[in-house]
């Protein structure tokens, strides 16, 4: 085993998950496997209801898989809870906490002393374009700033893997484009290991080293596309467009399947 390659940072193997409904069990995730190496940016796209968020919930420890395993550095995750920093689509900043207090929430939960938590969160404010807003309340910030604060709250926890569940999905398109560029920059600087769920193919191509296309429910990986383009990428580069077309086609096939087989589950 001496020359075995390093195990990936995170590996999901053969995840299965069904829910019980009035009509019996409904499989939402079937044999999903994916990996990300340290510092890789990996995206997951798929038609609505393909179980993307369920996969994330399993990784974040909010749900348990019926079968399959999650490995972190080649070891089953069971022993190492809390390996994931999770950022949902809604920023979920607490209105009663100022921005700095919001961003240190995860550290506080883990029992990091408030002074230290404050200092660690504060260090990231400049990179996240939030300097000067430490004492503002969430309602005083724009949508883009709130998402940046939510991402700060996620990454300051220094978990092994960052899970982003459509973090830019609720933003208007101009803010969204700006946020994609900013996210790419800040990721290149910090090199977190990222798993991103998105509906936006261009976003996936722009940001990712690898994109998984999940099929219609029950979700399973149908296509894996490596995006080997130099960064920062430009959306009108022919190579970029080729990858975008490939993903669009793969997603179109899956979406059609989903429509032919209407979902019981929303």
């Amino acid at each position: 085993m001496a020359n075995a390659p390093d195990p990936p940072k995170i590996e999901a193997r053969d995840l299965h998950k069904s829910y019980w409904t009035a009509d019996g069990p409904l499989a939402v995730v079937r044999a999903v496997s994916l990996t990300a190496a340290t510092g890789e940016f990996v995206s997951i796209i798929g038609p609505s209801g393909c179980g993307k968020s369920t996969v994330f919930n399993i990784l974040a420890g909010l749900e348990t898989a019926d079968a399959g395993s999650v490995l972190l550095d080649g070891e089953p995750i069971g022993a190492r809870a809390g390996a994931f920093g999770y950022m949902p689509q809604k920023d979920l900043l607490f209105p009663w906490r100022r921005i700095l207090e919001n961003t240190m929430l995860g550290l506080e939960v883990r029992g990091v002393p408030r002074r230290e938590a404050r200092a660690r969160a504060q260090q990231l404010f400049e990179a996240f374009g939030l300097t000067g807003f430490e004492r503002a309340y969430p309602s005083e910030l724009s949508g883009g700033m709130r998402q940046r604060a939510a991402l700060l709250r996620t990454v300051v926890q220094e978990r092994d893997v960052v899970l982003l569940d459509e973090p830019l999905g609720a933003l208007d398109s101009l803010t969204r484009t700006q946020m994609q560029e900013w996210l790419e920059e800040v990721w290149r600087r910090f090199r977190w290991t990222v798993l991103l769920i998105t509906h936006d193919i261009r976003e996936a191509v722009y940001l990712s080293d690898r994109v998984y296309v999940l099929g219609a429910r029950p979700g399973s990986v149908q296509t894996t596309v490596e995006v080997d383009l130099p960064r920062p990428r430009t959306a009108n580069d022919p190579a970029f467009l080729a990858v975008e077309r490939e993903l669009t086609e793969a997603l179109r096939v899956e979406t059609r399947k989903a429509e032919r087989d209407p979902a019981v589950w929303p």
């Binding site: 420890g61 909010l62 809870a81 809390g82 994931f84 949902p88 939960v109």
Partner: peptide, 11 residues
């Protein structure tokens, strides 16, 4: 969702 966020932090 907010409860889930905290639970994902290990709360």
């Amino acid at each position: 969702e907010a409860s889930n966020l905290l639970r994902s932090m290990g709360a």
